[in-house]
Simulated assay, not measured.
Amino acid sequence: MTTYLDFCATTPVSKPVAELVHQFMREEFGNAGSRTHEFGLNAKRAVEVAREQVARVVEADKSEVIFTSGATESNNIAILGLVDFAAESDKKHIISSRIEHKAVIEPLEHLESKGFEITYISVGENGLIDTDELKLALRHDTLLVTLMHVNNETGCIQPIKEICELLSDHDAYFHVDAAQSYGKLSEELKNSRIDMISASGHKLYAPKGVGALVTRRRGFTKIPLKPLMYGGGQEKGLRPGTLAVPLIAGFGLACEIAYDEAKDWLKQTAFKKNVLKAELSELGAIENGENTSPYILNFSIPGINSEAAMVSFKGLIAVSNGSACTASSYKPSHVLTAMNLGHERIMGAIRLSLSPNSDIPGGDIVAALKRLI
């Protein structure tokens, strides 16, 4: 039986979440917009419970949670939704980094083609952004700073607290892509200087197709986002369309479970990661990145190509050598390339991503890799 170690790509839906989703698909199947009968009212109540559960993770108000189809849509709303405000305020400068997910990089490239100026902060070999460079990049016309919390390939945890401090006297909006950390490493996401946070259900044992954008107010002022689609006015007019009540209820419950279990999850995954690192060290494995999440281990072994490793792992271990979201054709990782790692190290990179409940077949991994040396 294949052992799954690709939890950054997606997670299985937990049993209690699956049961709740099924309940709202088969029994409580009302439309949350129907106000004339109990089916609709029950659906609306379920959405509001979920909104509270999602908000609690980062100490936001439930009114600040907008449900979306996932972090990709949330990222697009956070970035492209500011276009009108940018024109009104004459602020068309955005700061980001080269290690962002494509769901951030591609919207930024679109804005660049429309006359926006994008400054990409450097990262070192450690995979962490240069906060001194960020400080120097800030300008009076900087509209937005958009940076991920935990990198989906390396697991590098960016210095969110320090970035918040740098922005304390600047009015640029701060957006954090937290797809890999929401509910798992949430403490820094509670910082009120973060204006927008993107989250995705299927990274947290909830179904695919649901996520959220947390949009914190500044005092009593809402972020001046405009919708990317129109029709129906749902989610405060920012994200129209009939709400996917079963998925939203499941995402809410997943967030509640994560809120209660996060500390234990961290202990379990940190232990498993350390076991893996110790076993891989006998092969000369080099970890790619520093200050990494306990959930992610990205490593390279001299002389081993990751594509060959994927073949040797087939039927044994499910792992990755890049982002599943951009896997239609394999190209060298833009993240590892931005870190200025050597070509051999980039082409040999393997990502293991863990779950508190995952088995750790370290011996099997080492044995399979040894056959390639």
Rank of each mutant, 00 (worst) to 15 (best):
F116A: 03
Y230A: 05
F7P: 08
F251R: 04
T215H: 00
M148Y: 03
G363D: 06
V311H: 11
T2M: 09
V65Q: 08
L352H: 01
K314C: 11
A258R: 15
P294N: 05
L253N: 13
G252S: 12
L144C: 07
Y259H: 15
S312V: 04
V311P: 01
G322Y: 11
L147Y: 00
Q53L: 08
G70S: 10
R26Q: 11
A71M: 10
V275R: 15
A9R: 13
S181A: 11
C156V: 00
C8S: 02
T221N: 10
A249K: 12
A262S: 11
G284P: 15
F7R: 07
F271D: 07
G233A: 08
I95A: 01
R351W: 06
G115K: 11
E59M: 07
L253S: 13
A78H: 01
P356M: 00
A338H: 01
K331S: 13
E88K: 15
G342Y: 09
C255M: 12
P159L: 01
L247Q: 07
T146F: 00
F174L: 06
E106R: 12
Y120F: 02
Y330I: 14
I129D: 01
E187Y: 13
E59Q: 05
C325A: 12
E100D: 06
L276R: 11
N288M: 15
F271L: 12
A367H: 03
Q23Y: 09
I66C: 02
H37M: 05
R98K: 10
I301W: 09
D6F: 12
P302S: 11
E109C: 01
P107V: 07
V65T: 03
T3A: 13
V49T: 10
A254P: 14
F299C: 08
H37W: 09
G231F: 13
C156P: 00
A338Q: 03
T72N: 14
G211D: 03
A309D: 06
L369N: 10
T68F: 06
L185V: 06
A43L: 03
Q53V: 07
M310L: 06
E48P: 07
V245F: 11
Y330V: 15
K114S: 14
E88Y: 10
L41I: 08
I350R: 08
G252D: 11
T154A: 02
S113F: 09
M339A: 05
V319Y: 07
K370D: 07
G342H: 14
A32Y: 11
V83K: 12
A349I: 05
